[in-house]
Design a protein around this nucleic acid. Structure first.
Lengths: 347, 347
DNA sequence: TATTTTTACGCAATCGGTTGCGTTTATTTT
DNA sequence: AAAATAAACGCAACCGATTGCGTAAAAATA
């Protein structure tokens, strides 16, 4: 009873007594085919339950309508928002997403890049793993002119565009805010300086210090993976400092480390923000739950994902050009919450 | 200089003066081909920079080595963990993932299912959207014997397997725990009862009540989408109840609603757990940040994702059978934290 | 050495759309 | 009405790997 063979354009052609070529064109709304014929074709297609075979199509046309997405880790609030944004954009334009994670491992990143390449993705969206020192593994893409868009953890390249926020500026503002609250010894919990996001935040932090004639102290700059544990460790570090050398504020490059640092310091009896003010980065859900609520930098992962994917797709469709655009910077705004409010705002 | 054409098995064949058929077989380690020839083939392949064309392969072999993943929302901690688990399993076995989200909309779910079908995924991993009343849209898959594995938000079907936890049992235990702490008026913040996860949790909650001769009151059962807003709304609802009718505990079907309910009640001056105890579900990161820390049900999204994907892949490889297995239940354990500890544990 | 069995490989037909180019039919121009 | 142009469609060769079946060469057996 159930037909085992797939319905093909040849079946439609036979059914309508026309050629398969016409059917193929008709299904793609090729103006070369008359309106009436097109209608007949699409009608017959739905009638017969036709489903286009993407392989045959991709094989011949060399287009997959698939985008590769490579991220360090899938399971973070930020990254899942990015993916949601990308999925929206892709879905809207008839593209699919192949998603893989490098788990912060360059070797896995390389393997995944190769897989994406083999799968002939039409374009690649990538956020680099922590320990990637170069982007030589992307050469096959550049060589074959397959467009690459970096997002968040980017790496400048002549043939591709970067989508993200201005981390330098954001960190500068957040640090300035802490200074405006009267903080003078501001610690920075930073990430791997190989990655632009952490490097830029570090630079923005230093710039703000310098501008306000505050000294930069290496003792107040901790580099870690910004995990929960790293936050807790930072707290221990702070508590072990001689009271006179303790920071009166902490600017963390992400909310997770900030929150877990706060929790440990609160447990040790420190008051926030009176004894030590806090600011994070990301506007992660936990920043609205910790008490006092965490001052942080808000930017939309969904917007980043959506923008990056849309931009890539538009490039593929020829309506814009990656090579002309070096970077797209999205808005990020400082969300001031109780964790950093030392002075009366009424002041 | 740069060759534009792809390197194909024909190039390898020509290079070695053998047939393309032999090359094809040699690349797949077909024992029909002698060891030496195989070696020559693989060597020539890497030498010439050969990359297999998956379309040609898929077109002919009718296998895509791609799994479709369809989830309600990508951006939740739980779901991104699930995806991470799936990605691991898929990557390990040489499979790829095509991921899409339904945004809790059946229509989008239907469209996505169709896309996956068109993309000829080898199998489908799906968690149903909130308002899906049936799974008729999966019929094409069942009809074509393409394996389907449900996870988390499942729907029993003769031809597929469900992977998740025992929500009934988990809710029963969590409610029993609240009762053991002396709570007598336990409210339940539940989700859409169409979905097994919420329905089962509701039933488990009721069973625990009944077993301890506590009356079930519809006034203490709120159904919502369990969002932040829903949690806040639940708090308002509680505060508006006559003091005598107020619950002395809340069991929420997820952590988000629980946490936002707690925040609002705390702001209103209620003490947790003294005035009202709390328990959530999911062990979301926020449950460890809220004060007091939230008692919740912990289960691994990664394990669910990994198990579901692995099981599907094994089925595809023929080493196990979906039809024989109705459901796979993973472990979930109660994590007791301060939000529900009314009695001295030393007691 | 003749014959059977194995082993190793080649032939050629797929899989199902796509597309350059040629051909027919309809429309416009002179 | 004849000629020129445009519109609509068909032919057939792809795209690159897979695989059933056939065959030549090598090994085993008689």
């Amino acid at each position: 009873m159930a037909e085992d063979r797939e319905v093909t354009i040849y079946d439609i052609a036979k059914y309508l007594n026309i050629s398969a070529a016409t059917v193929s064109r008709g299904l793609k709304n090729n103006p070369m085919i008359s309106k009436q014929t097109r209608k007949k074709i699409t009608d017959a297609a739905t009638m017969l339950g036709y489903q286009s075979n993407t392989f045959a199509s991709s094989l011949r046309s060399r287009q997959t309508h698939t985008l590769g997405v490579l991220v360090p880790r899938l399971n973070s609030h930020f990254m899942s928002s990015v993916l949601a944004g990308m999925e929206n954009a892709a879905n809207l334009h008839g593209y699919n997403l192949i998603i893989a994670q490098s788990l912060e491992d360059v070797d896995k990143e390389k393997r995944n890049v190769l897989t994406m390449y083999n799968k002939r993705v039409d374009g690649l969206l990538i956020s680099l793993s922590a320990n990637a020192t170069d982007i030589n593994h992307l050469e096959p893409f550049f060589k074959k002119q397959i467009p690459v868009v970096f997002f968040d953890r980017v790496h400048s390249h002549a043939d591709s565009t970067c989508v993200g926020i201005d981390n330098y500026d954001a960190a500068y503002h957040i640090t300035t805010h802490l200074i405006s609250q009267g903080c003078k010894r501001i610690m920075h919990l930073g990430g791997n300086l190989l990655r632009n996001v952490y490097n830029d935040r570090f630079k923005g932090y230093k710039k703000a210090l310098k501008e306000h004639h505050l000294p930069f102290s290496a003792a107040l700059h901790l580099v870690s993976n910004l995990s929960e544990q790293a936050g807790t460790d930072a707290a221990s570090y702070i508590l072990e400092l001689p009271p006179a050398e303790r920071p009166d504020a902490v600017f963390s490059a992400n909310d997770t480390a900030a929150v877990y640092c706060m929790l440990a310091l609160k447990a040790a009896g420190l008051r926030i923000p009176e004894d030590i003010a806090f600011a994070g980065f990301n506007n992660d859900p936990i920043s609205k739950v910790i008490e006092p609520n965490l001052t942080t930098m808000n930017y939309s992962g969904e917007a980043i994902g959506n923008t990056a994917a849309t931009y890539l797709i538009n490039h593929l469709k020829g309506s814009n050009n990656l090579h002309a655009t070096n970077a797209i910077t999205l808005r990020a705004d400082l969300v001031i919450r109780a964790s950093s409010l030392k002075k009366d705002t009424a002041g």
